[in-house]
Design a protein around this nucleic acid. Structure first.
Length: 107
DNA sequence: GGATTGACGTCTG
DNA sequence: GCAGACGCCAATC
């Protein structure tokens, strides 16, 4: 446990995402200085094997639910986001920039 | 041990 | 403004 690896930090940051907010791969990668957003997505892929990591709150730079296909159900991600009060349409987050949360804030 | 892939992002054409 | 190619770094085959 507590492997200070990059993906472990991704889990931590993702868990810190406030409810009703979302973050992006690039923002997390930039904050963790991982150097590449792909590692974040790849790490989140394994996140399902870990304890509750709200990976559904992490979307790509376009605000698209690009990772929905990796969920147990492709619609589960949208359902979870709408359940948190996030408007999702056509598998894309509405008011994305408005609910966007940057890990540097960590408020 | 080498090659390919991967929940993306940025640059150049 | 849109489309295509490259780059990141690690894991998996």
């Amino acid at each position: 446990m507590s492997k200070n690896n990059y993906y472990q930090q991704v889990y931590d940051v993702t868990k810190k995402i406030p409810l009703g907010r979302i973050s992006t791969y690039g923002a997390i990668a930039n904050y963790l200085e991982l150097g590449s957003a792909r590692m974040v997505g790849w790490a989140l892929n394994k996140s399902f094997s870990e304890n509750g990591v709200p990976a559904h709150r992490v979307v790509n730079r376009k605000g698209e639910l690009s990772g929905r296909i990796h969920f147990p159900s492709p619609t589960m991600m949208q359902e979870l986001l709408e359940n948190e009060g996030i408007h999702v349409e056509n598998h894309k987050v509405q008011f994305f920039k408005d609910i966007f949360w940057d890990p540097a804030e960590e408020l």
